[in-house]
Write a protein that binds this DNA or RNA. Sequence first.
DNA 1: ATAGTTCTTTGACTTTAGTCAAAGAACTAT
DNA 2: ATAGTTCTTTGACTAAAGTCAAAGAACTAT
Lengths: 296, 296
Amino acid sequence: METKHVSSLRRFNRYFTRRIGALDDHYLGQDRPLAEARMLFEIGEAGGGGASLRELRTRLGLDAGYLSRMVKSLERQGLVRVGVHAEDSRVRVAELTSAGRAEFAEQNRRSDALAEGLLRGLSAEQRGQLTGALRAAQRLLRLAAIRVEVVDGDSADGRACLDAYAADIDARFPEGYDPATLVLPHEVSGDAGALLVAYEEGRPVACGALRTLEPGVGEIKHVWVHPEARRLGLARRLLDALEQRAAERGFDVVRLDTHASLTEAQAMYRACGYTEIPRYNDDVYASHFFEKQLAR
Amino acid sequence: METKHVSSLRRFNRYFTRRIGALDDHYLGQDRPLAEARMLFEIGEAGGGGASLRELRTRLGLDAGYLSRMVKSLERQGLVRVGVHAEDSRVRVAELTSAGRAEFAEQNRRSDALAEGLLRGLSAEQRGQLTGALRAAQRLLRLAAIRVEVVDGDSADGRACLDAYAADIDARFPEGYDPATLVLPHEVSGDAGALLVAYEEGRPVACGALRTLEPGVGEIKHVWVHPEARRLGLARRLLDALEQRAAERGFDVVRLDTHASLTEAQAMYRACGYTEIPRYNDDVYASHFFEKQLAR
DNA sequence: ATAGTTCTTTGACTTTAGTCAAAGAACTAT
DNA sequence: ATAGTTCTTTGACTAAAGTCAAAGAACTAT
């Protein structure tokens, strides 16, 4: 890897955290410990339903005892109200009181004012450029943080993604989608195929399946990306990973089909070296068929 | 200002400080308090000559007593050696011992490894895109943080910039440059003209002068940008600010001259609406002459 | 020379942040 | 029903971070 990229990232990190991050923390905190301010912010961000202590603990990476005490302190200050979770009464849920919401709004106001102050020195055009550059950087940093893993055909994360996929396209296809059509666990386990799940900060955000169509021929199914992880280039990465698995398993060629309505997907397949072929199955949802020779 | 830009900056800040900044801090610290690790890093960055406690204090924003104790602790650990400043014996200067340098190198190694880990998930092309986006963002953030101020004609910062300007072009012009040619304090003070200095985090990084050439005609002189603040678009901003001052002072037109060798400057003047005119003075350093009508 | 500043150190604190272990209540799987 | 988990609270700490004021040595300006 070129050292240029490493040093550029480090340089940016130093500059940004010192100039913007530290400043924002300081403004956010104001007359309250930073950890408390941060927690108030997280509870506020969670919105109406409140945030469970469990969530807060993982989100902020705090010790359970420390967090418990901090919530209690916020409660004493009248900013937070704690109740039990509707479904699991071990779990406690914190939500803002009206005083807490006022404080949260004040935090936001201060943070906005800080950001505005930073942007004030730029022309409208430069602000647009900055926003564009930050968006591009964030997209790439997110993408870099996502890990694609091979999971078992009946793994909970894998099935959850497939179910989300089914629900997603059921809403999208005029004719709906029957979840019984999904690949079966044994079709994508062991030597038969593969199920890939992409994780972002521990949460599954995308999947893709590979199964055996006939000897030497693999089929790629159910490439799906969570709505909040779209436009990162993740589908392409999953496709690459699936092709690599296919090559490792000794397939010479992979095929896939797609629904007429998914035109972006079709464009992606073409861009990734797939060529359109005649119908190879009787899938009622499929209208376009593609295939790609794998380099061995 | 569009709220889009504000929220985009805030979103990026949250994502970046949490994902990258916090991680880097954690790695940097390792088995040493973060504040100590940071200080070691700052002393290391300062290089051979060491860093004065005074510098460190402002750079890290720490209380004098706190810093004093921290340096002493680093000294006890054999990582830092403290001596007195050559010119001012109130000031103490900290520099790394060889053990300190080893620790500093280790910090850098860890930080590089972290950055490399982050970049590993990206293709070479995507890494290039990320580097480009970060560079653009940093450029704009720096530019946004720079404030242009009107200073008195004999202000220390102003004269320091003008001296730097003179030294700079003395090295650049084949025939050298005589500093006696610089504008005099009274020419750029009060109603006669203006001296602008641009500050980045308290340090003067650029200047520009405006003086009266004849009634209704101003002259822009000595637009200079510190080498470390170049390519940010700062010269253009100074030029804008000088023109604004000129308009406020009632000039109808501003002129300027430039040396044949400064082709980038000439291109900038043209891009900013200046048109070339015949020689209007007998300045030996000048070969191209420009003028711009000011909107009133 | 002298008054006012600047730079640093020291003493005496407080607050914030965080850790670890024990224990109880509520869930889950068998 | 019961054993094992999960979620949270509490007690008992420690370490890190930071503040404030006083004081001495070294500078600067008049």
